[in-house]
Amino acid sequence: MPTVSMTVNGKSVSAEVEPRTLLVQYLREHLGLTGTHVGCDTSQCGACVVHVNGESAKSCTILAMQVEGADVATIEGLADGDTLHPMQEAFRENHGLQCGFCTPGVVMSALDLVRTNADPSEREVREWLEGNLCRCTGYHNIVKSILAGAKAMQG
């Protein structure tokens, strides 16, 4: 089996994998980073969103081999010790999550929005979330959380 190496949440990791191993499988099954979830098999739900070289990507639609040498960030790498990232804190403060399953992907997606658009409008947030399905919140408080998180990140 080929070997793949990358940086995940700032740590160098390397493993032998079958070529068909998806990035999300590598994260969950090899690295035990189970915060990244799988909610569909057609690349639509976004529960698996991580950052690859700083950009949001669906880890269920990337082979682990494709990100050889890349810098990958997952939900587990966001908080600073016991202190939540401002976006995580905004979700907590605004009840932006219920069952929590879609949440890691939504938060990682939201951070990519703020990277490209520091002060998004409500409409821009809603449109950005096209790749993230949530069945619990009706998105109302997710949108509120992201707007608050973006503001907090501007600090």
Partner: peptide
């Protein structure tokens, strides 16, 4: 096209 993650890849 697609969603932001599709557009990124």
């Amino acid at each position: 096209i697609g969603d932001p993650q599709v557009r990124n890849r």
